[in-house]
Design a protein around this nucleic acid. Structure first.
Length: 362
DNA sequence: AGGAATGATTCAAT
DNA sequence: ATTGAATCATTCCT
């Protein structure tokens, strides 16, 4: 359309003087005087120019009339010639766009989050993995989970239905028929619509297949950018969802009393070296029904907080020391164990400058 | 409401 | 990879 108006305006009525036109005009059967022909051409051009002002029916009729006009072949040939000359100035920019790194990033992320990619399996797997990383204690964990999953699949669904609209299938030129094996969506529908329009227009003005191709690629680029936006906002939505549901800091639950007792028991009975081995951690995790990393976190926090303010923990230390002492003496009457905390806090050598074959003390 | 307690995360050092 | 330290975000307690 732009081409049309540009063509018309730049060459306008001056086309009447075009050598090719003169030649074609001589082929014409009717028309006796040159003035009349000029008038004819002017009329035709005027009608073409104003065709968009008409109502649909009128325009249709007008188009038909123009197509049957005796001067039509001549004018068409002239337009072809002019086009041939001007089309050279239109750079045949056939830029094969390289895969956009940002788009790839978005795609990868959506895939990782289970939004894109295969069916539900991926989504729940990702959710499970994420939740596991967040370290659920159990309890209401499962409800949080399904909540998260529901929201995620909601996003997923919206994403897919939206994406489908703008997706363009590879056009496999099977013989000659475009359009048959295309998925029905906004992009393809619009593309075929434009292509049909151009093809229809090619009856009245010269349009090369290259141009149609170019137009199609422009449309595809536009739809691609829409897709990009969709992906971007989907990513944002997922990130927000993730931070709301899966950031463990947001969903912190204190361990139950029994668990903290077990942990404290171990800590204070190993106060000289409160670094449980891998196996010890595993056992503690099992006993407390928490994960190993939670055990590690707990000990990490405990060590640093104990060290920071030993005084504050004195009472607690005494309590657990006494408890283990009682259990030790009651369970086994043998007066063994160098671990006898008769003076409880004295065993608290963790930060104190004791002789220890342990790790750092400082 | 506000501070203490607490589990988790981050980051640098080892 | 593990740890200490600082910090965050939530829960508990008064």
């Amino acid at each position: 359309m732009d081409d049309q108006t540009r063509l018309m305006h730049s060459h306008g009525v001056g086309m009447a003087g075009h050598p090719g036109l003169a030649q074609h005009m001589q082929d014409g059967t009717a028309g006796t005087d040159g003035e009349g022909r000029k008038q004819d051409i002017g009329d035709i051009l005027q009608q073409i120019m104003t065709i968009t002002d008409q109502s649909l029916d009128e325009a249709q009729a007008r188009k038909h009339a123009l197509n049957c006009h005796r001067m039509k072949p001549a004018l068409f040939n002239v337009l072809c010639e002019i086009k041939e000359k001007t089309v050279l100035s239109i750079r045949g920019g056939q830029e094969e766009e390289p895969p956009d790194p940002q788009l790839m990033r978005l795609d990868n992320m959506l895939l990782a989050e289970g939004v894109a990619g295969p069916e539900k399996g991926g989504g729940s797997a990702a959710a499970a993995a994420a939740a596991a990383a967040a370290g659920g204690v159990g309890a209401d964990n499962s409800t949080e989970h399904s909540d998260y999953r529901a929201k995620l699949s909601q996003i997923r669904q919206i994403y897919h239905t939206e994406l489908e609209k703008y997706e363009q299938l590879e056009i496999v030129s099977t013989g000659g028929g475009y359009g048959q094996n295309l998925k029905k969506n906004a992009c393809n529908e619009f593309t075929t619509h434009v292509m049909n329009l151009l093809r229809e227009q090619s009856r009245t003005r010269p349009i090369s297949p290259k141009e149609i191709e170019r137009m199609v690629s422009i449309i595809h680029r536009k739809f691609n950018s829409i897709q990009m936006q969709l992906k971007q906002s989907t990513c944002e939505a997922v990130m927000i969802l993730r931070s709301r549901f899966l950031d463990a800091r947001r969903k912190r639950r204190n361990f139950n009393k029994q668990a903290t007792e077990i942990l404290n028991e171990y800590f204070y009975s190993h106060l000289s070296n409160p670094y449980p081995s891998e196996e010890a951690k595993e056992e503690l995790a099992k006993k407390c029904s928490i994960t190993m990393s939670q055990v590690s976190n707990w000990f990490g926090n405990k060590r640093i907080r104990y060290k920071k303010n030993i005084g504050k923990f004195q009472e607690e230390a005494n309590m657990y020391a006494a408890r283990t002492a009682v259990s030790a003496t009651s369970v086994s009457a043998q007066g063994s164990q160098a671990n006898s905390p008769s003076t409880p806090n004295s065993a608290g050598g963790y930060p104190s400058p004791c002789y220890q074959p342990d790790r750092r003390i400082q």
